[in-house]
Nucleic acid binder design. Structure first.
Length: 243
DNA sequence: GCATTAATTGGTC
DNA sequence: GACCAATTAATGC
């Protein structure tokens, strides 16, 4: 039996392993059928930027496989990393809706495969598939929550706490290998841009945490020795639950 | 091995 | 606690 391209395209979502992907989750819904065929696959090479800050919105991206960082350029070109994302997560959702331009940039940390739905397709999809719309609404709500806790963290935490918090975030999101190192490799600068401090402060925090046996490193690899011990360091803030 | 980039350390404001 | 400069380590070619 011969498959058409559209059939194969729809199949891609059904067989996709990203259970947490909103599209995947709703892919068995009959209402979704015609839209799944409209999915586009985008491949990114290491450190390739696929969303340019200020560029016209071209729909929503879902990470099929890979690691992404979402950035926003602040004043004087100072970069802020808003979040990291990997398999199954949504990118570019803040550009969706009435916005004409993306308020953020996004780039692949390493080789990445993305799924893209254009604005038109997405709008129709959301109008016609209530379950999907509901899921997306929940997602936006969580995002808002995370965003608010992040503001509090930035305002109330010390540099040391913010850096620790960043490590715990990376741990939660990417996990560690059996040897106890993060499943992602980031330069010091990225931790700084994410935690809202400078590269030097991150380096200094890392070396003192290593002395205290809370962190370990081997070559370029970084890892947490005991997450509970590290959580204790920021426990007064009680914010480590999300964001 | 050389050249470029990243990490580290010390110092100033 | 940020910014700058100097040194050293790591990595690409």
């Amino acid at each position: 039996m011969q498959h058409t391209n559209t059939e194969m395209n729809m199949e891609a979502c059904i067989t996709c392993e990203n259970k947490n992907c909103l599209i995947k989750k709703n892919s068995t819904n009959p209402l979704m059928e015609k839209f799944l065929a409209e999915r586009h696959t985008v491949k990114c090479k290491k450190s390739q930027q696929f969303i340019l800050e200020g560029a016209p919105v071209h729909g929503l991206f879902f990470v099929k496989k890979g690691q992404i960082k979402v950035v926003k350029t602040g004043i004087y070109g100072r970069e802020q990393i808003l979040r990291f994302a990997h398999d199954g997560e949504i990118i570019g959702h803040r550009g969706f809706g009435t916005r004409k331009q993306y308020p953020i940039g996004a780039l692949a940390i390493n080789e990445t495969i993305l799924c893209n739905f254009t604005n038109d397709v997405l709008q129709k999809m959301l109008h016609e598939v209530p379950d999907l719309t509901f899921d997306l609404m929940l997602f936006y709500s969580e995002e808002l929550n995370r965003s608010e806790t992040k503001v509090r963290k930035f305002a109330q935490m010390t540099v040391r706490e913010k850096v620790i918090d960043a490590f715990l975030y990376i741990y939660r999101k990417f996990g560690q290998t059996e040897e106890g190192f993060f499943n992602i490799q980031l330069p010091r600068k990225d931790y700084a841009d994410f935690a809202g401090t400078t590269e030097e402060q991150v380096i200094r925090t890392i070396s003192s945490l290593k002395k205290e046996n809370l962190l370990k490193s081997k070559g370029k690899k970084l890892g947490i020795v005991d997450t509970n011990l590290l959580k204790k360091e920021i426990s007064e803030h009680n914010y480590f639950l999300d964001s």
